[in-house]
Design a protein around this nucleic acid. Structure first.
Lengths: 144, 144
DNA sequence: CCTATATAGTTGATATATCAATTAATTAAA
DNA sequence: TTTAATTAATTGATATATCAACTATATAGG
């Protein structure tokens, strides 16, 4: 084989590593704070909280997840009584809302989430963050 | 709740999106080329190919995966007869090597992989790529 | 209207991630 | 040297990702 780059020199590998480090760090902070939720469940809750009566497909698109994954994550959030599914005008769709318990949960998690976000970028200047966003968006545009 | 950033404005969210786009694009190119393998299986093959008689724990560390995940991915690569496990001097460890079929497979995949890597960064100057790597490494250091 | 097609969501199958428990082999300590 | 502690890998349980098949509802065209 023509000599290939070492895996460690491939940019995608570094992106993969960054993502995994963020996810693990976040999960550990949740656990330490006694916040009983996965990172993916948190993402779903957060998006529902940001939105007004979002549907499952909209949720899937917003989070780059499959409809099937969303169904299953919602099942767990329903069990925890953090969300409700309400029938839409179109009887096929479910509109999703946080329960009061879900809202309280988000408030509790907020402090941890804020710290986790801050920690990752604490050594990056504003300008460097902006540059990073632009570069990532370029990669997305090239592959989408 | 104190007003929180929208999910779309969080840098981690953008990193998550970038990673998913890369993985989906890569998988689609593999499929189109008739390369019957998952992205994770490819990562494992690539690392074995880069290394001299790597063990499962070393593989797990290099790929930020759990030992259990490595065991299961290797099961599938064994079924496909792309790798072999050889006993180490320490009888607890397995040293991993590509079979001749595995080597041939890597050669076939090489062209596709090279194109996929190039496509993602085609609009980024060398300098921008270097900056991107540095920023990602900073995030990793902050959270590791 | 009535039928064909499209859409939202669910379910099943397989792959991967994570954690905990287990097995086999090794090393350290008594 | 026998026992205790450690380590490499596997296995089981649960969560998530992806694809395909399916159900229920909605809409378009005849």
């Amino acid at each position: 084989m023509t000599t290939d780059q070492k895996l460690e020199d491939v940019l995608y590998y570094l992106l993969e590593k960054t993502n995994k480090v963020i996810r693990r760090y976040s999960q550990v902070r949740f656990n330490e704070a006694g916040i009983n939720i996965t990172v993916d469940q948190w993402l779903v809750l957060k998006k529902i909280n940001d939105s007004d009566r979002i549907t499952q497909i909209e949720l899937a698109n917003a989070l780059f997840k499959d409809r099937a994954s969303i169904t299953r994550i919602l099942d767990l959030l329903l069990e925890k009584k953090l969300i409700r599914k309400e029938p839409g005008v179109d009887k096929r769709v479910h509109e999703l809302v946080l329960t009061p318990a879900g809202q309280k949960f988000m408030e509790q998690a907020f402090g941890v989430v804020k710290k986790v976000r801050k920690k990752g970028i604490e050594t990056l200047q504003d300008k460097e963050q902006e540059q990073l966003r632009m570069s990532l968006q370029k990669i997305i545009r090239n592959l989408e």
